[in-house]
């Protein structure tokens, strides 16, 4: 090696500076998440002291708190965190892979597929619970496969996936709209509750439905994250650096769609979380290293915070999806304006 000491020290310094900042922000996000999580257990009606919450968490019996914190608030908050992390991971994977912030699963039709299937199960089949959830998962994956098959022949896969996805989303939305017209009054209420994305019905079963896939799929995504960051250099350069493009892309789509579909099945579509988490995380961390962990943390924080806002900030209780939808729409416009100005990727 011929480079002199100082040159390689410069390189090392630049590299570490980025890594250190990313680590600090990830630590900050994690602390914020733990604090908000604890807050979500203690706060509400009634408000419990941290000591009571701690006693419930460590398995001691506290009259009242054991039920309200242990059986109502805890599964709700855990579901919020896990589903939020799933949405965040799924979104940032698509956005990074296709180099476009619009490429999130809730914009390119995957969530819409899950919605239509869930509504079909509720309205036509009169199903509930697990059948609705599994219908949503299967339909989400099938929609993704359809979009991928229609878009993936030839060049410029990224742009075509987004356009085909938006088209499919519109078609599926009309199916959803038709089912809503067709539904009787009782089913309509259940359908609307599902469509709004809500944590009101959180149970430990619901938590398991999303937690198990999360434990399997999230590490798989971390394994793929280096290849994913190489894809950001463009397909030709990534292929030249030894990334098998097509297998990598298929794996990434599969894992990300799995995460999004299971999360949607457990909570209904919590609008725009998948879409917002990645860009916010990248804003905070910069483009150093993998955006995966920060995006998962931001997704979890978004869902948890939006749910708390929806429950307690207004006179009426709003489902979490209404709050994220209200936050996400302006964010979408902001991103569109910014993307147009920079012509850039995520």
């Amino acid at each position: 090696m011929s480079a002199n000491r100082t040159a390689s020290e410069t390189v090392r310094a630049v590299r570490l500076r980025g890594a250190r900042r990313a680590r600090l922000i990830v630590a900050g996000l994690a602390i914020a998440l733990v604090a908000l999580f604890a807050g979500s257990l203690a706060f509400g009606d009634p408000v419990y002291s941290p000591a009571d919450v701690w006693r419930v968490l460590t398995g001691q019996f506290v009259p009242g708190a054991s039920f309200i914190v242990g059986e109502l608030r805890l599964p709700r908050s855990v579901l919020a965190v896990v589903a939020g992390a799933c949405f965040g991971l799924a979104g940032v994977t698509f956005q990074t892979m296709l180099r476009n912030p619009l490429a999130s699963p809730d914009i390119i039709g995957i969530t819409n597929g899950a919605n239509a299937a869930a509504l079909f199960a509720i309205v036509v089949l009169g199903a509930s619970g697990l059948v609705v959830s599994l219908g949503a998962v299967v339909a989400g994956v099938a929609t993704a496969a359809l979009i991928y098959a229609l878009a993936s022949s030839g060049a410029a896969v990224g742009a075509r996936l987004i356009l085909v996805g938006i088209g499919i989303a519109a078609m599926l939305n009309s199916v959803t709209a038709y089912l809503l017209v067709y539904a009787n009054e009782f089913d309509l209420q259940r359908a609307m509750r599902w469509l709004n994305g809500s944590l009101n019905l959180a149970t430990w079963d619901g938590v398991a439905l999303v937690a198990v896939p999360f434990v399997v799929l999230a590490p798989a995504l971390l394994l793929l994250s280096r290849r994913l960051s190489l894809l950001r250099l463009g397909e030709d350069l990534a292929a030249g650096l030894g990334v098998p493009i097509e297998p990598t892309r298929r794996l990434l789509v599969l894992v990300a769609v799995g995460l999004a579909a299971f999360a949607t099945a457990a909570t209904g579509p919590i609008l725009f979380v998948a879409f917002m988490a990645g860009p916010i995380a990248t804003r905070l961390v910069g483009h150093r290293g993998s955006p995966m962990v920060p995006s998962a943390l931001v997704g979890a924080l978004l869902v948890l915070a939006a749910d708390l806002l929806g429950q307690y900030a207004f006179g009426t209780r709003y489902p979490v999806g209404v709050v994220t939808g209200a936050l996400g729409a302006p964010f979408l416009i902001y991103l569109l304006i910014r993307t147009q100005r920079t012509g850039g990727s995520l």
Binding site: V11, V14, R15, G18, R99, R232, L233, G234, D236, L237, A239, G240, T282, G286, H287, R288, T342, G344, S345, L346
Partner: peptide, 17 residues
Amino acid sequence: GLLPQSPIAPEGITVTE
């Protein structure tokens, strides 16, 4: 190695990275 025609750098990445 291959250097494609007009490659695009990811937004915000430093030279070293």
